[in-house]
């Protein structure tokens, strides 16, 4: 009969509507309060009804493999031996494998010998070209470039802010352990320890310290698994670039500063440092 389909459709809409509210009743109308833990049910397979993620008050967290623009891993700023050292050895594999060719690397040379040293002098990613494919992270042999989870990158001006340079790309290793704990562990296992590949090699060459090192790593790993990495306050004095604090773990998400809300002075300081480096390089080239 004419009209039956129409009525049925309306009833369907009604059912979805009611279902959504039944769910609200179940949770005592605590739909949007920040500390309800029904999110998992609502966004899982068992949910009935239609639920909206109340961005920006609540956000769907990203899975570990999530990829947005890449970042460069540097050693923790409170690392006892190599604070803030780049993991990247400027081997250039990521620049070669990048499909739209948006990675630019300047390899640094030792001023005395002229031989390349394993640290990039400059590293740029044009995020107006980057297709977030993740190849750079996948093929980097040193685990030095990783896909970031921070998608809140909108800006008013692309000419000044959309080519990310090394300062802007660098984030502590700690940060990677925070955003992708399991992958970090897997990678560490593949490397044979938490430290950078080369550092481990050097340590092994250094003598019998390797065993104790491995012990230490294992101990730390266990600790890691017990408790998500808490954000440690960063030693600002060690390096001006230390302004990038790691994102806080879930447990502390209430209090911590976000990595990108640097204070003006820090940003200014970073800018000056970068400019000075640039100028130095420019004069060198001339």
């Amino acid at each position: 009969m004419n009209g039956i389909g129409f009525i049925k459709g309306m009833l369907l809409t009604l059912r979805h509507f009611v279902e959504s509210y039944v769910d609200d009743v179940r949770y005592g109308f605590k739909k949007y309060s920040p500390n309800v833990d029904n999110f998992q049910q609502r966004q899982g397979t068992q949910a009935a009804g239609v639920f909206t993620v109340q961005y920006p008050d609540e956000k769907v967290a990203m899975p570990e493999r999530f990829r947005f623009v890449p970042f460069l891993v540097v050693e923790d700023y409170d690392h006892p031996e190599r604070p803030g050292k780049d993991w990247c050895t400027s081997c250039g594999i990521c620049a070669k494998v990048c499909p739209p060719q948006c990675i630019w690397i300047v390899r640094s040379n030792d001023p005395a010998t002229g031989r390349p040293v394993p640290e990039p002098e400059a590293f740029f990613i044009d995020i107006d070209i980057c297709m977030n494919c993740g190849f750079c992270a996948e093929y980097c042999p040193f685990d030095a470039i990783k896909m970031d989870h921070d998608y809140e990158l909108a800006s008013y001006d692309r000419t000044t802010s959309h080519i990310f340079d090394k300062d802007k790309l660098s984030k502590e290793f700690k940060y990677w352990k925070t955003i992708a704990p399991n992958r970090a562990i897997d990678e560490a296992q593949a490397r044979g320890g938490w430290e950078h590949k080369d550092a481990q090699k050097a340590a092994r060459r250094g003598g019998g310290a390797a065993d104790s090192k491995r012990e230490e790593v294992r101990a730390r790993k266990e600790e890691e698994q017990k408790q998500p990495v808490a954000s440690a306050p960063v030693a600002q004095e060690t390096k001006p670039a230390a302004a990038e604090t790691p994102a806080p773990a879930a447990a502390t998400s209430g209090g911590g500063e976000k990595p990108w809300t640097d204070s003006e002075e820090e940003r200014e300081r970073r800018k000056q440092a970068a400019l000075a480096r640039k100028a130095a390089r420019a004069s060198k080239r001339e």
Binding site: P34, F39, Q40, Q43, G44, T45, V53, P56, D57, E58, K59, V60, A61, M62, P63, E64, R65, G134, E138, H149, D150, E152, T178, I179, A180, P181, N182, A247, A249, A250, S253, G254, K258
Partner: peptide, 28 residues
């Protein structure tokens, strides 16, 4: 392929206000 299925479809908090989910992949 890029990688095998993860054991859990797990999200981790990395921004403020993130809501975390955690499911067993096969169960999901």
């Amino acid at each position: 392929v890029f990688a095998d299925l993860p054991e859990r479809i797990r999200t981790v908090a990395n921004l403020m206000n993130d809501r975390v989910r955690d499911f067993n992949t096969m169960q999901f």
